[in-house]
Design a protein around this nucleic acid. Sequence first.
DNA 1: CTGTTAGCGCATTCAT
DNA 2: ATGAATGCGCTAACAG
Lengths: 332, 332
Amino acid sequence: MATMKDIANKAGVSQATVSRVMSDSSSVSQKTKAMVMEWVRKLDFEPNYSARALASSRSYLICLVLPDVMNPYFADIIYHVEKIASFNGFNILLCNSDGDPKREVDILKSLKSRQVDGVLIGFSDNHSPAIKILRDSELPTVVITQFHEDFDCVAVDHYAGGEMAARHFMDQGAEYFIYQGHTDDDKFRGYYNTLKDAGIPEDRLDIMDLGHVWYHTPQRAHKAYRRALEYLQNRKYDSKTGVFSYNDLSAFGFIHAVQDMHLTIPEQYSIVGFDDTFMCQVMRPTLTSIAQPKEEIGQLAIKYLLAKIDKKVDTGRESFLLTPRLVQRETT
Amino acid sequence: MATMKDIANKAGVSQATVSRVMSDSSSVSQKTKAMVMEWVRKLDFEPNYSARALASSRSYLICLVLPDVMNPYFADIIYHVEKIASFNGFNILLCNSDGDPKREVDILKSLKSRQVDGVLIGFSDNHSPAIKILRDSELPTVVITQFHEDFDCVAVDHYAGGEMAARHFMDQGAEYFIYQGHTDDDKFRGYYNTLKDAGIPEDRLDIMDLGHVWYHTPQRAHKAYRRALEYLQNRKYDSKTGVFSYNDLSAFGFIHAVQDMHLTIPEQYSIVGFDDTFMCQVMRPTLTSIAQPKEEIGQLAIKYLLAKIDKKVDTGRESFLLTPRLVQRETT
DNA sequence: CTGTTAGCGCATTCAT
DNA sequence: ATGAATGCGCTAACAG
């Protein structure tokens, strides 16, 4: 590995001049610049990041902390973030918190010593102790997926998503409504409030709580399936029913239960998932789902973070609330 | 951020002693060690990685280069690799080559200047120009997923996988065989040779080439579906047929075509996918698939790489060929 | 426009 | 067992 010193010797200039050429900041004459660049090419020189980071406390490293890198939703985010980051000369340090606040704390503590330039994080929990650590670190940060008042955020309007599902069901003529998922969630609130405001009586809304986990496993679908089967077996009501699920995987579970009970989709049961994962298009029947603009989330988050790092943005808190979109398919 | 100097001042020792305590290598008296550690705790000291890397050329950074981080198969690998790496004090630098040799080359060129300690890579192509660069860099490297004679590898025996599919079909009484995918692949060879050796005439094997891409998109399934539909519409043969697909997504495409033609699974068409992604359990009918031991691949690869970095392993080339496993479900 | 100098925080060699 | 000194490769004043 050639160093600036090597280049300087060959080109007959000082090491500082080589540094100037590389950062092409301050003034360097065209002639010496050309000289230096020639040797940079000849010796295939690339500046040492560790040395640069040590001297300038700029590592060109962005840490991406996610609760579950296996989840296709986050995998999408990783892809778009990495793409733009690398395009701008930054590398991604990927950390999986596993939805565990302890791991999250450890990760964030290590960031300062890694001298990362910025952090992109999806918290495992909005009350994670990691939050204080991150705030105290004063690292440029952008929170993705959820909101947190202490940070700049790029999130999706889950409330609006719930609203969309509710309206869609009513448009389709549903008279009874089910929600699959935990109720401490904006998408539930949007769903519930919209139905209530439309005059739907409370006894026409059933809630099937499946607990909340980040893990993206087939067990999710199984659990939803079994709960749904049990539910359908004991059910007498037969007007058109809308089923809104907190994620696609659980929606598939419900679909299978409906099929096993020889009920019809979408005539008797109209189903809407959440996330619009690629499975929605692959499954039969194809699943109507609320799509989160994953590409936009990732791109916006990393672009905003890079701008913050470059001090191009610093006017206090700024958050982006992206609107989801209902993608209609065969289940409705 | 406290530095060793700060600790040294507080503890009344030299910075060198603090360094010794932190690396707990050379001899330090119990007393001074305790003193130092106390201040390390009090000041919440953590060594600066950039400085350490610069001085010792050890970054505790592992670069994971993958062709498609969105693919669930690789997402699994990322998860297991990150887990073990972080447990051992290493961080993961994640790079997506997008299956593009040019990007791959750029990534690998940058690794030296990043001073990464090791590389875990899944090549976009076994003839990628990136290979020479990586070889010349002399960085500790482990290649995952595929084989390459110039590197240590952790791969899966695709040939055996094809063999398993072939035998499985014959056991089920299939008389006609289809292969979906590109034929320049060991899983095809294993499939083909096994059938041939069993006396199956060549005209009983159809190949449906879908091209080879890393990208994991629903379009894959659509393409497979349309090709399969067209194929089935023109088909007269009606003995039991085994369909072996080079990945699960394409297998689903075939399944849908069979369903649309009102043919039966597994009576008329017996289908086996590859990868055993979680969709196999979620889809109806559930898909029989050749499972790659993803967890084992990831764990073995990173463990072996860490051992190489620690110079605990250096006895020439060593490669691991893991055996896949057929998971039978409803499609066979 | 360019060279000199002084660190950045740590590992490491050489003394003691 | 420990301190002093040196250098890793680069950035950032400070001179000129």
